[in-house]
């Protein structure tokens, strides 16, 4: 019984996902690209980096990378804490 409920839920969710993917917007045609156009145009004069993705990761959105490094550090600390306590 519960298996049929789960199958129905899965069918509804998958149908919603597929329908959304078909209906979202045409592939390869972003409607608003001003910010990314700015990054592509000015990553060389402002940051002096050829790679616009690296310029965004470490310069324009440096706070994001700082939080990401914090998340990685927290995960390593958590794994060390979990796996050290019950050492056989």
């Amino acid at each position: 019984m519960s298996r049929w409920v789960m199958l129905l839920a899965f069918a509804v969710a998958a149908g919603f996902l597929i329908f959304g993917a078909v209906a979202v917007r045409p592939f390869g045609d972003p409607p608003r690209a001003e910010m990314d156009g700015y990054f592509n145009r000015f990553s060389q004069p402002e940051v002096a980096a050829n790679n616009a993705v690296t310029a965004i990761v470490f310069d324009y959105r440096g706070y994001d990378t700082l939080g990401e490094a914090t998340v990685l550090f927290t995960a390593v600390t958590g794994v060390a804490l979990i796996l050290r306590r019950w050492r056989a």
Binding site: V47, A48, A49, N50, T54, A55, F58, D59, T65, A69, L72, F73, A75, V76, V79, A80, L83, R84, R87
Partner: peptide, 30 residues
């Protein structure tokens, strides 16, 4: 070129190397 970006790349590279290496080593030692 690119100012502080290569230095930040090295810092984050060492951090990720140490973090992933520590995770894999802890899993193996457990």
């Amino acid at each position: 070129t690119a100012g502080t970006l290569p230095l930040m790349n090295w810092a984050v590279g060492f951090k990720v190397l140490a973090g992933l290496g520590a995770v894999v080593l802890l899993f193996a030692l457990f």
